[in-house]
Amino acid sequence: MSITKEKALQLYEKMCTIREFEELVKKEYLAGNLPGFVHLYIGEEAVASGICGALEECDYIESTHRGHGHCIAKGADLNRMMAEIYGKKTGLCKGKGGSMHIADFEVGMLGANGVVGGGYNLAAGAALANSKILHNQKVSVVFFGDGASNRGTFHEAANVSSAWKLPIIFVNENNGWASTTPYQTTTAVENISDYAAAYHMPAKIVSGKNVFEVYRAAAEAVERARKGEGPTFIEAKTFRVEGHFVRDAEKYRTREYVAEEQKKNDPFAEFERIVLQPNEEVDEVITKEELSAIHQKSHEKVLAAQKFALESPVPDPEEYLDDVYC
């Protein structure tokens, strides 16, 4: 079924905001203006936008070290998110978490995670609490990369989630690279979603450049989870445009290869290809002028967030040990 033009534009705005945010963060990091480490989500915008577009604010997500896109798609406060990356007191974690440890519980964003595969059991725990203890219909989503699929925590969480029919969605962002290693060299299966069969979990492969395809798969999985039918595995075939981290020398792949794959997997080009003419995805054609206006709106929001961050104070030295578990 086609979705409304309004919903399509909402998805596009999330994609644009993620791209604008990441490009500014990259620029600022290269200029030496940001502390810590930065892993960018450029090229994968349709995955987070499509998945989170099918969720309610009360639902939960668990992210990864490449988590900016997930945060924005779930509705994290953009100003406080930018302030967190700048290490400012007004940040979502008071400037103490930085890029890899952003969380915004108010919108169900349970946290980015610097530990590869660290989010599985946290998301499963949230799903367990909601379904078996609190008895509500909230859904949990855990995002993870192709490299993280080989961690033992995945198999633990997948097994218990299926055995107890937990309302959780496993979203594998297969961007082709586990840090510097192509996933085919360390993974025996052709598709990572093949793992789901071992746990009697339904799985679906979607194009990570097509936000509508991702959204529809997520909507089906959410409906299934809310009905108490258990977990779903979604594998989104996408592409990591940037290196593993900003300033990655990328000696493991050529720029020609990256440029070719980027062109083939561009979610913005795919969106425009679909919506600028009559189509089955959206109930009304969208114009180039409407898309340009959304780009500009997203650009201005990100600049406003940067201004907020730059004008915010750094944490007071005496507060450095506050909020630390002893």
Rank of each mutant, 00 (worst) to 15 (best):
V115P: 05
G91S: 12
A158V: 05
M81L: 15
L166I: 06
Y120A: 13
A127W: 01
A124Q: 15
A83D: 12
M109N: 14
E84R: 08
F143L: 15
H101V: 02
A112S: 14
I168C: 09
V141C: 04
I85C: 03
N172P: 12
G114N: 15
G125C: 14
D104N: 08
I169G: 09
G87K: 13
M81H: 04
V141A: 09
H135F: 08
P167E: 01
K132H: 15
A129Q: 05
Y86H: 04
V171N: 05
N150E: 13
G147E: 10
W177N: 03
N136R: 00
E156W: 08
A158P: 12
S99R: 05
N172Y: 06
G97C: 12
N150A: 14
I169L: 10
I133F: 14
E173S: 14
F143G: 02
W177F: 13
G111A: 07
V107S: 04
F143M: 03
G118W: 04
I102K: 04
G91Y: 01
M109F: 14
A83F: 13
V139W: 00
F170Y: 13
N136F: 00
N175L: 13
G91P: 05
H135R: 10
T153S: 06
V171F: 05
A124P: 06
L128F: 15
H101R: 07
G108N: 03
A163H: 05
A112F: 01
N113D: 15
A163E: 03
A163R: 11
C93R: 00
V139H: 00
P167N: 14
V107L: 07
R80N: 06
N121K: 09
V139Q: 00
V116F: 14
K89I: 10
E156L: 06
A163P: 10
H155A: 02
E173C: 10
L134N: 12
L128P: 09
M109L: 15
S99N: 15
G91K: 00
M81R: 09
R80Q: 15
S149H: 05
G114R: 11
L92A: 08
H135G: 00
Y86T: 02
V116E: 07
L110V: 14
A163S: 12
R80A: 10
Q137E: 15
L92P: 06
F105E: 11
L128V: 05
A129E: 03
V160M: 15
A103N: 10
A129F: 01
Q137W: 10
W164Q: 04
A123Q: 07
G117D: 08
G152K: 04
M100E: 06
A157G: 13
V139K: 00
A126K: 12
A157S: 15
V139L: 03
R80D: 04
V116D: 07
N174W: 06
L166S: 05
G87S: 10
